[in-house]
């Protein structure tokens, strides 16, 4: 029978987009950054990516088996969480740290709160902050080209000069996935082209961040300084891939703009006035917690209903 003449109850509008396909697109979009990371940092980075992704998937499988729930590893969300976490780790992360992070992300941040769609903060970032607080030394030691060096962002905070071109291409110290702005932007363009994300959250995030840096950075509108802040650290990876996570970002359009501004201001605040050079992860998980509030405040009024919301 022709599919067009099916008689059924609603929903009538069908789409081939599933959770699995969206997750798969995001994973594909992360591939340029991943490949670049593996190319720059070599075999250790590849191991970190593989171990973290595998242990995230295995944790989800085991938990759902043990709890006698439907096993949902087929929707790639666990794999995506693992991959995102790996991109947020330094290449020298030992295997047990990768496993611990994955288990924390899947078990504590995601499954304990009810699985995909119920987690209140981005699992990968939750795990990154867990590891960052627990193993500060290991998480902030970056080796590039055989030399332990400061990240450009740390240099920037110390008032030293940085090479913008290297930051753009990714010839710098940092976590596996955050170094190359170009590779991340390629992935982001792919996501925008596929309609998975739109510009609202990343756009307002980056714009409000730039405004904050210009106003409070102490350098005025210094293009080099602002660009270095934009390209440095996890800002690009966070803005395009983690702030836009469907589960932990607002649904309403106004809400997304408010959320983006929150992110930008918080990131600027942490970076300029905080103790450490980086602030993207904390800004994102903090804003994740504000999402229910933002959604409640920006609830659209149904057409035809006047007065109170």
């Amino acid at each position: 029978m022709n599919e067009n003449y099916n008689i059924s109850s609603s929903p009538h509008i069908r789409s081939k987009v599933t959770t699995g396909s969206i997750m798969l697109y995001v994973i594909i979009a992360l591939l340029p950054a991943t490949i670049f990371g593996v190319y720059t940092f070599g075999v250790p980075a590849l191991l970190v990516v593989l171990i973290t992704t595998a242990s995230a998937v295995i944790t989800e499988y085991l938990y759902q088996k043990l709890m006698k729930k439907k096993v949902t590893i087929g929707d790639f969300s666990a794999a995506l969480t693992g991959l995102l976490l790996a991109l947020n780790l330094p290449a020298e992360a030992p295997w047990w740290m990768c496993v611990l992070g994955s288990v924390f992300a899947i078990l504590i941040v995601k499954q304990v709160f009810g699985g995909l769609g119920q987690n209140f903060m981005n699992p990968a970032l939750g795990a990154r902050c867990f590891l960052l607080i627990s193993f500060t030394g290991r998480m902030t030691t970056f080796v590039y080209d055989g030399v332990t060096g400061a990240t450009p962002l740390a240099l920037l905070k110390a008032g030293e000069s940085v090479n913008l071109m290297d930051m753009l291409i990714g010839n710098e110290a940092g976590t596996i996935g955050e170094t190359s702005v170009i590779a991340i932007l390629v992935g982001a363009l792919f996501l925008i082209a596929m309609g998975i994300i739109d510009l609202r959250i990343p756009g307002t995030y980056l714009a409000s961040f730039v405004v904050f840096i210009v106003v409070f950075g102490g350098h005025g509108f210094d293009l080099t300084y602002v660009t270095a802040h934009l390209c440095g650290g996890g800002l690009m990876l966070g803005a395009w891939f983690m702030a836009t996570d469907y589960v932990t970002s607002p649904i309403t359009k106004t809400g997304q703009i408010v959320y983006g501004i929150c992110l930008g201001v918080l990131t600027g605040l942490f970076r300029l006035f905080g103790g450490s050079a980086e602030g993207v992860s904390y800004a994102i998980i903090f804003s994740n917690l504000l999402v229910p509030l933002i959604e409640k405040m920006t609830l659209p009024r149904p057409f035809g209903k006047g007065g109170e919301r």
């Binding site: 047990w96 611990l100 867990f130 607080i133 627990s134 193993f135 500060t136």
Partner: peptide
Amino acid sequence: FEPITIFILAP
């Protein structure tokens, strides 16, 4: 064994 420092902090 490397201590997981977060456990002796508030979280």
